[in-house]
């Protein structure tokens, strides 16, 4: 009999400190809020670099456009999936949501390497030039990941590492989308490899650090 009375004593104690709470908005709305921040950064980059160069590149080489669209969709779906996994009771299969857009992003980027002509307004990056891309993706991924982790700490991610991987994917894809605005290099193996390295690094760091930060609940 002592066990039930212990539980009821705890329930009484929890009831005594009950205060009204503000309900968590649905995952799609929280993801949309984060994407608005990404859109605001994109707007600043458009003001600085203009959209002409990007549109010229996309018109001349549609594979670059498809890769850009894939990156944007990957960012949106990965963020949505991360917020969905932040709510107890949601299926772990939400994690599959960004897979198709990610395949489009990676596939279109890879196809670009097979072209034997150079997209308009671009050059093929030399061995050291893609380092700038790596720095850009990592520099933008850090604050975007931090924002997602901060937002998700208000939720209850019961699968912290999987959620952190999605956070990494969302922020790396968003950073790659932003890079598209001012990216002056054509798709090439060295450039693609640098992008892949940056994305994998962002996801791995998130899985290691973000998983711990999300676990404290």
């Amino acid at each position: 009999m002592s066990e039930p009375s212990n539980h009821h004593r705890l329930i009484d104690a929890l009831g005594a400190e009950l205060v009204p709470v503000r309900r968590l908005p649905p995952p799609w709305r929280r993801a949309a809020g984060w994407l608005l921040v990404v859109a605001a950064i994109a707007a600043v980059l458009f003001v600085h670099y203009g959209s002409g160069g990007m549109l010229r590149r996309w018109a001349g080489a549609p594979d670059l456009a498809w890769a850009g669209v894939g990156a944007v969709l990957t960012a949106a779906t990965a963020a949505w999936a991360a917020f969905a996994l932040g709510v107890p009771g949601r299926s772990a299969r939400w994690a599959w949501l960004p897979v198709a857009p990610a395949l489009l992003w990676v596939g279109a980027s890879g196809l670009g390497c097979l072209r034997d002509w150079i997209a308009p307004g671009t050059v093929v990056a030399g061995p050291h030039q893609p380092i700038g891309c790596l720095q850009f993706i990592i520099a933008f991924s850090v604050p975007l990941s931090a924002l997602l982790i901060w937002l998700l700490r208000r939720a209850c991610p019961l699968r912290p590492v999987l959620t952190a991987v999605l956070i990494g994917l969302a922020s790396a894809a968003a950073s790659a989308s932003l890079l598209e605005i001012c990216h002056e290099f054509d798709a090439a193996a060295s450039d693609l490899l640098t992008h892949a390295l940056a994305v994998v690094a962002v996801i791995a760091v998130n899985a290691a650090m973000g998983g711990r930060l999300l676990r404290s609940r």
Binding site: H7, L10, R23, V87, P88, R154
Partner: peptide
């Protein structure tokens, strides 16, 4: 579980 529910009750829809 009761303690966790108390902390995350705002996540219930």
């Amino acid at each position: 579980t009761l303690l966790t529910v108390h902390r995350v009750r705002h996540t219930y829809d």
